[in-house]
C-alpha cells in the first residue's frame, strides 16, 4: 500500500479501508488472546503434574471427582505416571519428565505463532496510523476550502 496512491483516495474510501484494517486487527488480537490462554493452561498442567506425579504419593487419600457433582473418597495409585491427551481423544501414559516435555513443547510451538501474530499486529497498527494522518490532513484541507 504505497502512500502516494492512498493520498489520492477520497475520504470515504480511506475511512472504509481504515475500518476494515481495524476489523482485521481486532480478530488478530482475539487470536493472540486465545493462544495466550492456551499457553496458560499448558503451564497449569505442568504445575499440577509436578505436584501430583510422584512415586511417594501412592496410596495418599484424595477426594475423587467421578462426575461433575460427585466426589468419592479414594486413594492415588500408580502415582508415578499420568495419562495425557495427545490429541483427538487419545491418551498415553507418561512419566513426570515426559509430561513436562510434552507440554513445554506445546508452549514453545505457541510462542512461534505468537511472535508471528505480534508482527502482523504491529503492521496493521502502523497502517492504521498512516491512514489516520492522511485522513486528518484531508479533513483539514476540506475545511479550509
Amino acid at each position: 500500500m504505497s502512500e502516494v496512491s492512498l493520498e489520492q483516495l477520497p475520504i470515504q474510501e480511506l475511512a472504509k479501508i481504515k475500518s476494515s484494517i481495524q476489523n482485521e486487527f481486532e480478530s488478530l488480537r482475539n487470536s493472540l488472546e486465545q493462544l495466550l490462554v492456551a499457553q496458560r493452561k499448558f503451564r497449569n498442567c505442568i504445575a499440577t503434574a509436578q505436584a501430583t506425579v510422584k512415586e511417594e504419593n501412592n496410596g495418599k487419600p484424595i477426594l475423587v471427582p467421578l462426575t461433575a457433582s460427585l466426589y468419592v473418597p479414594g486413594k492415588q495409585i500408580r502415582s508415578d505416571k499420568v495419562l495425557v491427551d495427545i490429541g483427538t481423544g487419545y491418551y498415553t501414559e507418561k512419566t513426570l519428565d515426559e509430561t513436562v516435555k510434552f507440554y513445554q513443547h506445546r508452549i514453545d510451538t505457541l510462542d512461534d505463532n505468537l511472535k508471528q501474530l505480534e508482527k502482523l499486529l504491529n503492521e496493521k497498527s502502523s497502517q492504521i496510523q498512516t491512514l489516520d494522518l492522511i485522513l486528518v490532513k484531508k479533513l483539514q484541507e476540506s475545511r479550509s476550502k
Binding site: 493452561k41 497449569n44 498442567c45 499440577t48 503434574a49 501430583t52 506425579v53 484424595i62 475423587v64 471427582p65 467421578l66 468419592v72 473418597p73 479414594g74 486413594k75 492415588q76 495409585i77 500408580r78 502415582s79 505416571k81 499420568v82 495419562l83 495425557v84 491427551d85 491418551y91 509430561t99
Partner: peptide, 16 residues
C-alpha cells in the same frame, strides 16, 4: 478408575 487432574490430564485412583 481414572479422574481428571486437569483439562488434558488424567490420573489413576482406587476407590475402596
Amino acid at each position: 478408575t481414572t479422574y481428571e487432574l486437569d483439562e488434558t490430564m488424567h490420573a489413576h485412583a482406587q476407590i475402596d
